[in-house]
Nucleic acid binder design. Structure first.
Lengths: 198, 198
DNA sequence: ACCTGAACACCGTTCAAGT
DNA sequence: ACCTGAACACCGTTCAAGT
């Protein structure tokens, strides 16, 4: 039972090349056609057969999660910048904007992200990153509440949902930036404590 | 040019039967499988060939719009009840809930509805109903604003978008009723005038 | 005028055969 | 151990042929 496939050994060179080519092709296609892009086309552009794609990424979600890895790292980096602010209210606001941008990486991305939270199956590779983002949002909310800048009834998950919603609307393309801004303002005045404006 | 197909004449009996059977089958499938349900399966259940479905409803949107007709009429009826309230603030709140229920008729419905608003092509049979709903929402918002119950910066379209969003989240199934209620409360305190609580 | 079912195209997924 | 391309299944859409 100990001589299975993926020991800590270096993967073969062509395996690494295939994986990299698949990720690059997938990102291009997700950008162009949204998360529902044809996997056949991705494999073709990466110069491999469809079965090779499935060997590397058994589900569309697995491929999506791998492509999103880079963006997640950007989000973590952003968190450090935000921490420097000091102001809990402004920190929460900026975090929500960063979340929204992350969700807007590809058109149609909010859908599988919500599904990942719904199913709560450990085999969905998107569940873990989502849970982390929800937890982080909750931390920002708590900090803002302690500083008197957010209503006590608001939870991190609520604002996570609000951010996904805005991203979904943005991705649907039915709306100009002005409407989005009004929607963001509406959400903001929804979670803010009225008096704590200093 | 005047002896075309659909004059005011009565359609043949089998045509009426087919149309009715298609609508019934479509509603069942949309309820079970969401708006992306297999049209092939719909035709099969209605006892007709796929081409007959396409003759009656050239696009998925056309079929969807026809199935939604009944629900739209329910919404209009609801409007009359709401008008009896007198209270502009409560009227707006109830209208938004009615909208949300309408959008939740089938899973995945928010998607094509947003697309209809985006494309603004007259051949999309969902565009007209959506535009009407937006206009109606705007009337409720204006009335609430006149009564001092809604912020002047809010537009009907904003709250229309908010209602679609809540329906989308509800339809994604990732969320319990409590979270939805908190989200609705957040939106409400977002558009309400703080002082005008009487 | 309307219907039918076969036909075509496209894509996700798997499997037998290669190296 | 990994790759390949053929094969299968499913579905949306159209077309030639019927009545």
């Amino acid at each position: 039972m100990s001589a299975k496939g993926q020991q800590g050994r270096k993967p073969r060179a062509d395996v690494q090349r295939n994986r990299a080519a698949l990720l690059e092709a997938a990102q291009r296609h997700f950008l162009r056609a949204g998360v529902g892009a044809s996997l056949e086309a991705v494999a073709k552009e990466a110069g491999v057969g469809p079965a090779t794609l499935y060997r590397h990424f058994p589900t569309r979600e697995a491929l999506l999660a791998a492509v999103l890895q880079t963006r997640s790292e950007e989000l973590v980096a952003r968190q450090e910048d935000i921490a420097l602010l000091g102001d809990a209210s402004e920190a929460l606001r900026q975090w929500l904007r960063a979340l929204e941008e992350y969700f807007s990486a590809f058109s149609g991305l909010p859908e599988p992200l919500m599904a990942a939270v719904r199913e709560r199956e450990p085999d969905n590779p998107l569940t873990l990153p989502c849970d982390e983002l929800i937890a982080t949002t909750d931390e920002y909310v708590r900090a803002a509440q302690l500083a008197g800048h957010a209503r006590p009834s608001v939870k991190g998950y609520d604002l996570y949902l609000a951010a996904v919603s805005v991203a979904w609307i943005k991705g649907s393309g039915a709306t100009d930036e002005e409407s989005l801004d009004r929607l963001r303002a509406l959400i903001e005045s929804g979670y803010r404590e009225q008096d704590g404006e200093e």
